[in-house]
Design a protein around this nucleic acid. Structure first.
Length: 357
DNA sequence: AAGCCGTGGGG
DNA sequence: TCCCCAAGGCT
């Protein structure tokens, strides 16, 4: 529940700054326009989950061009959508995006629910995204809390409880400063502030519109907020991947299981990834081991993937789910970045051997 | 409910 | 180089 006083001053200070300094972003209505398309708001919010504005830009342009409405997206083939998402990461988002578009199209007549609860029931829409879409697309008062808001609020009120334990208190504080009017602008203003001024490291307190409202700026180190619990060490794993190239210029791509890491994506066949992976190739032959391994860092472990390559004849039939893919069109396969690197390793090897002839 | 789930950029 | 982290959701 919002109260008057210091809280309302924060909102008015921030909105006044936002009216002048709002970032121009592809998914925002142009200044002075109230034309917010819920489809574009929702699509951008899902893409922006744990993902930078810079990374989302080209994907948002590609998606809205190819699928201009939720109905168009709902009609997309699964493989096409997964391939279009390739490289953006967190692939469960892509599967949920499609499920959500189909739910909106079939269960809601192609119209997004306009309440937080209605949105929250959709696949891939959690507390943050439901609040953000309700506020930004539908003008409803909603308490929008993402990592930016957590940081700004923790500083405004100098909250010393470490995350994640501080979440309830941060949310209550965010509720108190959220205005009844312009909740969507307020949410976006908070995120703009967190992205450009109240940054995680080296916040620009000198130019902050909330400087006079901020408790942390009075402390020795405003950047020390929010306090965070120590994080666990990231384990290192090993793995083997197999580049199986057919004489007619095709490579065998496996289809990964729908759930789990890189779920539902194409990739090179290979071993499990662990401390002592099985290096045995899927069949015997003149395998060539390529050095060095591909180094890749995931959210919760790092990986060294050793690539092994072989040439097979036309009649070769690999095991497991997958397909032969033309190597000169590999960019269209929608490979996750790890396998793009692995493929580059294999093809660089071929360039070298070709050059020697 | 803590762990799982990608990737690229910046300090 | 290495570490941090970015408009989180799901189980």
């Amino acid at each position: 529940m919002r109260v008057e006083g210091r809280e309302s001053k924060i909102a008015s200070d921030l909105l006044a700054h936002y009216d002048v300094h709002a970032r121009r972003l592809p998914w925002r209505a142009p200044p002075g326009s109230n034309a917010t398309d819920p489809y574009r708001v929702w699509l951008s919010e899902v893409m922006l989950q744990q993902t930078t504005v810079a990374a989302v830009g080209p994907y948002f342009a590609k998606f809205t061009e190819r699928w201009p409405s939720v109905e168009a997206l709902a009609a997309a083939a699964d493989a096409d959508l997964m391939a279009a998402w390739a490289g953006l990461g967190y692939y469960a988002r892509a599967r949920n995006l499609l499920a959500c578009a189909r739910a909106v199209t079939s269960d809601h007549g192609g119209v997004f629910p306009d309440t937080e609860d209605g949105l929250r029931a959709l696949p891939g829409v959690g507390a943050y995204t439901a609040a953000a879409v309700a506020a930004i697309a539908f003008g409803r008062r909603a308490v929008v809390v993402d990592a930016n808001v957590e940081r700004v609020v923790a500083r405004l009120f100098a909250i010393t409880t470490p995350l994640p334990a501080a979440r309830p208190a941060i949310r209550e504080a965010a509720d108190r400063i959220t205005p009844d009017a312009r909740a969507g602008d307020f949410a976006q203003a908070m995120m703009d502030l967190g992205a450009t001024i109240c940054t995680s490291r080296n916040p620009a307190c000198g130019i902050c519109p909330l400087r006079a409202d901020c408790a942390a700026v009075l402390t020795a180190d405003p950047a020390a907020f929010p306090v965070k619990a120590a994080k666990k060490a990231k384990p290192h794993r090993l793995g083997h991947a197999f580049w199986i190239e057919r004489a007619d210029g095709h490579v065998w791509l496996a289809r990964r299981p729908d759930k789990g890491l890189l779920g539902g994506m194409r990739g090179l066949p290979g071993s499990a990834w662990n401390d002592v992976p099985d290096p045995t190739p899927p069949f015997a032959g003149a395998w060539q081991t390529l050095e060095p391994p591909v180094a890749h860092v995931f959210t919760h472990f790092s990986l060294a993937l050793t690539v092994h390559a072989i040439q097979v004849n036309q009649g070769h039939v690999p095991s497991g789910a997958g397909e032969w893919w033309p190597i000169d069109r590999l960019a269209e396969a929608g490979l996750p970045t790890l396998f793009v690197r692995a493929a580059e390793t294999a093809m660089k090897k071929e360039d070298v051997s070709d050059a020697r002839h």
